[in-house]
Nucleic acid binder design. Structure first.
Lengths: 367, 367
DNA sequence: GTGAAAGCGCTAACAC
DNA sequence: GTGTTAGCGCTTTCAC
């Protein structure tokens, strides 16, 4: 590893002081004459100099690195978030570190520590256990963005330097369920995530709220892991009377469709299916999956702004029903309205608008 | 951001010198008496001290950070690699940076530069354009692991500090094709990636080799993007005579199955399908997809060892046909043998063994 | 407009 | 076994 040129080499080459080289590179904080500037630039070019980000961070007391801490990188929904976030950070000259807790709370904390040691300037946290270890978050020396914290949770109430993204899974679930109701299905079941998780409960609440509003009774509620196999197994447990199912996670929905097929049933004829946290894969399942989608690009943008401290303004907007699949579709009800709100001075909530993207699995398109 | 305690604070608290604190933390390079050690540990605990990784890296001249540079993080195959690599690095106390080139060569280079500035110690590169910009790799001041470089490519031949992982996509393609042949299908088509890519060509070579060996004629060869939509569109172009298709990428295969269904055909009855670069999603497609799988965990382990310079030994082993799906299956032919080889002293090739995982899409399980 | 020099927090060679 | 100290490459204050 042949020694790379340093700022000293550039200064020597340019016949200036090292300070001037910094001024040129950073365009400040002091002015430099055009002539000197050119000499420095030439020297940089000639030596092939490239600033040492590590040294820069040490001197600055802060790094250009941010981290994403998730439960499962292989989950397409989260991989998509990672991708979107990477793009936003890249365009701001920042880099993204990833941590995969593998659904393990202990590991989650170890990753937090590792990030802290690496002087990661801020992190986006899709937590495993909920409520999250608030003390760990509070003591984190940087901005923390929480993606999946329900509004009523402690993380959403306690003040701190962290910022929560209001995904409102409650409303997502409600929207999905309302769509099924609008089709006239009578016996709505739900596949939820593990019961002990706060976000599972949020989704269940949304499902129940929609049913209540329509004055309908809740059907079977099956709790399953947020995995394909979880959905597959759940499909085998769905009773004859059930004519529509709200699946609370796309991975589960994928398995659910497979399970239905394996047991000789089909969506939407035998059982209609609507899911949430959609990814582009939904359009290519057989049948294509109707699901609620989060505006991940918009979320990533907001998150990046918040992390880096270049907050612009929170755009408002209602939730909509889209015909986003390749197939024809008839729009349907469900227009929940989310409001970007602030709970306290320290805690910014970012409103996120979700959308229902129609596929074949809900029966919208005949068969 | 209240100032965090530094090593100086710990030394003061423990009543020792700063050097001793380092010795304790790093368990060397000099011995420390048990008594002093305890005092230091107590001080660390009391102050809540956490080493500053940035400063450490500066002093050491190398960081604990590695990077993964891919074309598309949302591709489940690559997300899976990212996950596996993160796990391996985490267990070695290293962190993983990700870069998503979005299939853009220019961006790929920018990411390389960013990593270089950040003093990333080594990187894993799944390149966009092939052959890769060798000069950029050669000048990279760290270990570079190339994932998708065919054996015969310049990157595989030119000496350097980089190390290539021998995925042997040629053999993967061959294995998949041979499986179709063993079923007795007569008219084999192939959906390849973009023609200008080296890895597309490798896969095509494998397909042709299998056909040649069986003394069969090549059927339609359709080139499509490595996307679901690419596979979907390709399915609509497949002629009546084709009874089996080798799809060169799992995303394409997913779209292909959807396209078949949309056009009223089904796998495997109308067209059998086998793909490569499988992920767990394959088992849950309808029908479940037969595909060649890479041992990503094993690969990640080897890559991590290589990156960090803790190389153990290259385990050998043949390729096998597995019944890895949830469904019953009859094993089938195709046993290509890969050898971990060395092209030069500087270029280590890591042999990777692939496996055919049987699903329903190839017709193995009746249907 | 330019340059000398004091850190940033840590490692490790070198003295004691 | 322990302490002193000279860097690592950069930023930035403060003189000139």
């Amino acid at each position: 590893m042949g020694k790379r040129p340093t700022r000293d080499d550039v200064a020597r080459e340019a016949g200036t002081s090292t300070a001037v080289v910094s001024y040129v590179i950073n365009e400040g904080p002091r002015p430099v004459s055009e002539e000197t500037k050119q000499k420095v630039l030439a020297a940089i070019h000639k030596t092939g100099y490239m600033p040492n980000g590590i040294a820069k961070s040490l001197a600055n007391g802060s790094s250009d690195t941010y981290a994403l801490l998730v439960t499962d990188m292989a989950n397409p929904f989260l991989a998509q978030m990672a991708q979107a976030l990477e793009h936003e950070l890249f365009s701001r000259n920042k880099t993204l570190l990833v941590g995969d807790s593998n659904d393990d709370p202990a590991r989650q904390l170890e990753l937090l520590e590792a990030f802290q040691r690496q002087q990661v300037s801020g992190l986006v946290w899709y937590g495993v256990d909920q409520p999250l270890p608030l003390n760990a978050i509070d003591s984190y020396p940087g901005t923390v963005v929480l993606i999946n914290q329900p509004a009523g949770s402690p993380a959403g109430q306690q003040a701190g330097r962290r910022i929560r993204v209001e995904v409102n899974e409650y409303a997502e679930a409600q929207m999905a369920t309302e769509h099924l109701i609008s089709h006239g299905y009578q016996h709505l079941a739900m596949i939820s995530g593990p019961k002990e998780r706060l976000n599972s409960r949020e989704r269940i609440r949304g499902w129940k709220a929609a049913l209540r509003q329509a004055d309908m009774e809740a059907g079977a509620l099956i709790s399953a892991p947020y995995t394909r196999q979880g959905g597959y197994d759940a499909a085998l447990q769905i009773g004859e009377e059930t004519d529509a199912v709200f699946v609370s996670n796309e991975l589960q929905a994928m398995g659910f469709l497979a399970g239905l097929a394996a047991s000789g049933r089909r969506a939407p004829d035998d059982v209609a299916v609507v899911a949430m946290n959609r990814t582009p894969a939904a359009s290519y399942l057989v049948p294509s999956l109707t699901a609620v989608q989060l505006p991940h690009a918009q979320m990533a943008k907001r998150i990046a702004e918040v992390l880096i401290g270049n907050i612009v303004d929170v755009e408002d907007g209602g939730n909509t029903v889209d015909t986003g699949s390749r197939h024809g579709a008839k729009p349907a009800g469900a227009g929940v309205r989310l409001e970007p709100g602030k709970n306290s001075d320290d805690l910014e909530c970012i409103g996120v608008n979700h959308t229902l993207v129609i596929g074949h699995s809900c029966g919208c398109t005949g068969r």
